[in-house]
Design a protein around this nucleic acid. Structure first.
Lengths: 218, 218
DNA sequence: ATTACTAAAAGACGAGTAA
DNA sequence: TTTACTCGTCTTTTAGTAA
């Protein structure tokens, strides 16, 4: 179990962008803990790669690593999910289908992955799950057409252009996931592409044709 | 220490607005804990008044109480503070002064209090701390004039009208606080009114004339 | 003053069990 | 099936201490 509490405290002290100097004793006071425990917690965060430290005789300088920031951001997004849960939530139902295999090529691009990590709060498994929507869901899905969603910017890399798109947060069988809609989509409206932190096909033991429902927050 | 982890999980399951039915075993699975521990954690949350339950033979219905939601929201705002920390932060310096005593009358109005709780993430102590700004700080404060801040809407109650205003989150001596600026202020620009979850005068042992600095996120 | 070790005290967990 | 108790075990914390 990650000691999110200590990490959060360090972030509040400003350690997320720049190194901060702090002694175990100071830190202990903040957390209402003994200096020994504070010291040990910092050691543990260090060992887990969530912070990096340089220790001096009179304290230690530390920064929250990218990994640490990612953990905190994930936590932040969890709360966002709790409190920003829109009244409007649609439930799309569709059957699992095998896409053109293009999805993977696109989403693994650094230019996309970075944005996903930052804006969705998770690093997607490098592949999308495609659902062939039912007729009712196709109509429901259209609601998304005039929603902003979470914008993903286009970029240039390897001498070519990658287009932008929009994401919508959601859940599949309680797994946090996101629907991604490219701005210039080549898919008709009856197929959706889904990102998740895990391989949904494996995690949920899905095969082509299986029906599954996805909650989408709009 | 509050078991924020369990509370968060319940919120994710939807317990924040409506009662949810769940068994210790289900809950244990989610949290990767034994049913015994899950059961005990729910008991504790109940005893602390963070959730309320009605227990049946085959599970229990529970809702997160207002107190519980407040705790979670506080957590949410903490992360907001970490991640939405604006580059722009100003530090206002001023000396403690006794206001006209009007502040209290206004802010205790339900119409305001509800908004404070929701938008600031804390329930303010029913009274404001007034600071008489230094010359430099008066200039700095003007930066806020063209910032949106956190809008507080006006309302009608008891047959009269209460005006709106803007708040700016900040910190005084590490205590989360907020500066409040009424839309139609009667104060000149050299005095600011500060809200905090505690009585700042007492907590910080302040007397009139004491100099103190407040960080304001703009 | 630090950090961080060891060992004792405190607390959390989960198996077993009753209702 | 539940919830929730007791109790042994394991984990975490803190006091004491060294560097």
């Amino acid at each position: 179990m990650v000691d999110i509490e200590s990490l959060k405290q360090l972030a509040l002290m400003g350690g997320i962008n720049s190194p901060i100097k702090i002694s175990s004793h100071e830190f202990a006071t903040k957390l209402e803990l003994s200096p020994q425990t504070a010291s040990r917690r910092l050691q543990e965060l260090d060992e887990e790669g969530l912070i990096s430290r340089t220790i001096h005789g009179n304290g230690q300088w530390m920064t929250i690593t990218d990994l640490g920031a990612e953990v905190l951001r994930g936590e932040y997004y969890t709360y966002q999910r709790i409190f920003e849960r829109k009244e409007d939530m649609i439930e799309l139902i569709g059957s699992v289908t095998t896409g053109l295999g293009e999805g993977q090529y696109y989403i693994v691009q650094d230019g996309y992955m970075e944005q996903f990590g930052e804006k969705l709060g998770f690093m997607p498994f490098p592949g999308t799950l495609n659902l062939n929507l039912t007729k009712e869901s196709i109509l429901l899905r259209k609601k998304l057409d005039n929603r902003k969603g979470i914008p993903i910017s286009g970029f240039k890399a390897d001498g070519r252009t990658f287009g932008g798109g929009r994401c919508f947060s959601g859940e599949i069988a309680d797994i946090r996931s996101a629907l991604i809609i490219p701005d210039r989509t080549h898919y008709p409206g009856d197929i959706i592409e889904i990102l998740a932190p895990v391989n949904l096909r494996e995690s949920l033991s899905l095969a082509d044709g299986d029906k599954i429902r996805m909650k989408v927050f709009i």
